[in-house]
Design a protein around this nucleic acid. Structure first.
Lengths: 218, 218
DNA sequence: TAGATTGTTAATCGATTAACAATC
DNA sequence: TAGATTGTTAATCGATTAACAATC
C-alpha cells in the first residue's frame, strides 16, 4: 500500500506522503483562485498567486508538482482549470457532509457560519444532550439527541465530525464516531484525542492561539 | 537590537528569534501542567510531559532551554514552578485584556466562551455596527458601536483584538486598531491582513481546516 | 553512592528557496 | 523568434531527534 514503483508522478494516487502544510496551502490557493475568477481573471502565474499569499513562487509550483503538471511554461495557470483541479485533489469537488457534536456557543456559531457551505460542505445534523436544544434547527442543521449518534451518522452519510463538546465527554464521543466509520474529526476541544491510525484529527485550539499572541505584546 | 553577545543564555531577554511553534507548545505545556496541578502531582519529567502531548522529550527540554534552566537533573521539573515560569514567559501571569470586533455568530460564541478567562484573559468590550446589538452584554463584554473603537480601546487598556467581522471591512478595522497602538490580532476573517512590522497576526481559518480534512477522506 | 534526568551539542530529517533547462 | 514561466533538481535553511557529559 505504501511501497510502490517510485518512477511515475502519480497525478491521482496518494502515493508519497504529502506534507499537511501543502494540503492547507492548496485550500488557500483555491480560495484565491475563486476570488480571481470573480474578477474575471483567467490566467495567473505562480508569482502572482504567491503574492496574494505572501509566499514564495517556487513553493506554489512545488506544491502543485506533488499532484501533476497544471501550468503552461511561458503562460502560467488557467484560473478556472487550476481551481477545478485543486478541488478535485482536495476531494471537495462534490458535496461533503459533516455533523457538529455539541451545540453550545461554539457549536451554534459553527452551524450558523456560512463559510463552509461556500466550499461545498453541508451540515444537515448536529447532536446535543440537552432536551431543550434537541429538535431545534440552526443554520441548515437539525439538532438530534446524542443517543442517535451512530444511527444518524449512517443515515445522513456523514463523513466529517466537528467536535465542540466539553472536555470530559470528548474522547468517548470520538471513540463512538470512529467505531461507526468516521475517519476525519475537526476538534475544537482542548484535549488530545487518542485515535487509531487512519483517523485524521485537526485541532483548532482557540486558547492556545490567543495565549501565544500574548507573548508578542509590548 | 538583534545582534548581541552570543555567549549567555539570556533567560529573560527576547534575544534570539524564538520559533512560533515553540511559543505555541509552551502554551500547551502550561495547560498540561495545570491539569497535573489539579491532580496534586508536584513533579514531572520531560518524558512524562511529552507523553501527554504525543511529542519528543528532547523537544520539551529544548523548548524550555530557549528561556533558561527550569529543571533539576535526576529529578525533573516542579509542576507549579514550571507553570509559573511559562506563564511569565508568555506574559500571561497577569490579566490581559482583549476586545472582539464583529458580534456575529462567531463573535458571540467567542464572547460566551469560558476558556479564555481560565487563562487570565478578560474581554470587557466588543464592537459592532448593528444598533440592535450595541448595548447588549454577552459573556462579560459590553457591545459598543464601532465608531467608538479607538476611544474605547484606550479607555479599557485593550491589548489584543479578536477580529470576527466580514471580509470586506477587515483590513480597514485592522488599520484603525493598529493606528491606535494594537500589536496583536487574532484574525478569524479569511483575508490576509497587510500589517506593518511589529504587528503580529494569528490566523484561524475554519474553512481551510475543514477543507484540508476532506483530503484525508476515504 | 547509584540511578535518573537535565541541558546542550551533534546528527538527522524535512521543508523552503534558488537556479535553470525545458518549453510554450 | 524572443520573452516568459513552468517543472524540477540542487542548495539552503530550520526544526526535530539522538546522544551524552554534567549534575542532582
Amino acid at each position: 500500500m505504501e511501497d510502490r514503483p517510485q518512477g511515475q508522478a502519480a497525478e491521482d494516487g496518494a502515493a508519497r506522503r504529502i506534507p499537511k502544510a501543502v494540503i492547507k496551502r492548496l485550500s488557500l490557493y483555491s480560495r484565491v483562485l475563486q476570488n480571481l475568477e470573480m474578477k474575471n481573471i483567467t490566467k495567473v502565474s505562480s508569482k502572482e498567486l504567491s503574492e496574494h499569499l505572501g509566499q514564495n513562487p517556487a513553493q506554489v509550483r512545488k506544491d502543485l508538482a506533488y499532484f501533476g503538471q497544471f501550468g503552461t511554461p511561458g503562460v502560467g495557470y488557467y484560473v478556472a482549470e487550476l481551481r477545478a483541479q485543486i478541488k478535485r485533489i482536495l476531494r471537495t469537488d462534490r458535496e461533503v457532509r459533516a455533523a457538529v457534536v455539541g451545540v453550545g456557543n461554539l457549536g451554534q456559531a459553527l452551524l450558523a457560519y456560512t463559510g463552509f457551505a461556500r466550499e461545498g460542505f453541508r451540515i444537515p445534523i448536529a447532536f446535543d444532550t440537552d432536551p431543550l436544544k434537541v429538535g431545534r434547527t440552526i443554520g441548515s442543521a437539525q439538532v438530534l439527541p446524542v443517543e442517535e449518534l451512530e444511527e444518524r451518522i449512517r443515515q445522513y452519510g456523514i463523513e466529517i465530525i466537528i467536535l465542540a463538546v466539553p472536555s470530559e465527554p470528548a474522547q468517548a464521543i470520538a471513540d463512538r464516531v470512529i467505531r461507526c466509520g468516521i475517519t476525519a474529526i475537526l476538534n475544537f476541544v482542548p484535549t488530545r484525542l487518542v485515535v487509531p491510525p487512519g483517523v485524521k484529527v485537526h485541532y483548532v485550539d482557540l486558547t492556545i492561539e490567543l495565549e501565544s499572541l500574548a507573548y508578542y505584546l509590548k
